[in-house]
Design a protein around this nucleic acid. Sequence first.
DNA 1: CTCGATTTTAGAATCATTCTAATATAATAA
DNA 2: TTATTATATTAGAATGATTCTAAAATCGAG
Lengths: 138, 138
Amino acid sequence: MEMLMPDQKLRNMLQERGLKATSQRMIILDYLMSHKTHPTAEMIHADLQSISLATVYNTLEKLIETGLVVVIDVNDDKRHFDYYGKPHYHIINQETHEIIDANNFDVQPLIDAARKASGLNISGYHIELYGIDPKDAK
Amino acid sequence: MEMLMPDQKLRNMLQERGLKATSQRMIILDYLMSHKTHPTAEMIHADLQSISLATVYNTLEKLIETGLVVVIDVNDDKRHFDYYGKPHYHIINQETHEIIDANNFDVQPLIDAARKASGLNISGYHIELYGIDPKDAK
DNA sequence: CTCGATTTTAGAATCATTCTAATATAATAA
DNA sequence: TTATTATATTAGAATGATTCTAAAATCGAG
């Protein structure tokens, strides 16, 4: 199980957020940081066979709570997960379900507007745009 | 079953989008247009008892396909549905699951950015921001 | 090193959503 | 109108992603 991130860095990322640095959590976090495939829980479990599916779900929940990971809704009845290193949003091809990470838009004004509209402290967000390839137009 | 929208208007909205104007579809569309409660399929079914749950789901699917309705992801394991009359985005209180419709942000620049980043024609989007009441800060 | 709190785990359970296939209906043409 | 046909509705069964359970393992503070 090659760690692509240094062990100590993963440990720190978890502990800084109040999470115990278990080997399973480090492996899953490393997996998400080093894959751009936006996997489902089942895909992560399939690749990391030594880790139970329940732990994959439990870990993802903790990583989401602490902001390290976000969920992407692809409209395929399963949640996809994405390491949230830098602010970005998602563009989803409605036909192929391909997911594109994009960051050519500053979300801060949207966050400010939401705080103003709601009075809440914004702790996270989902931005997903769905698109169709012009080549596929009927 | 009081129709709050004129019957003919509902009929036209459906037919303009290539959907047969069945009584069930008119009732469900009217329900969504006249409620700001962001109901789940089960809630709609409970209120409109004469319409089967399968039809509620089938109809919602059609209304989503044609852009009349959008899905809101509240993180409570059920989809919530919202009539999409005017462009808006959603702010969700993470503790109470309350949903706020907000429109104090112009989404067109985001749509333009997404088209530029992906080359796709953007056909829809989800914008959801999650927030915590400052009064509940620990 | 100890110990308690937390985490992991396999398998069972849940339940929102989809599917099935039989019946009913809307929209079109005669 | 009425006939025709594609489409929609329905009850109930099936699906499957996710959550739950409770027993065993492990982290990390002291």
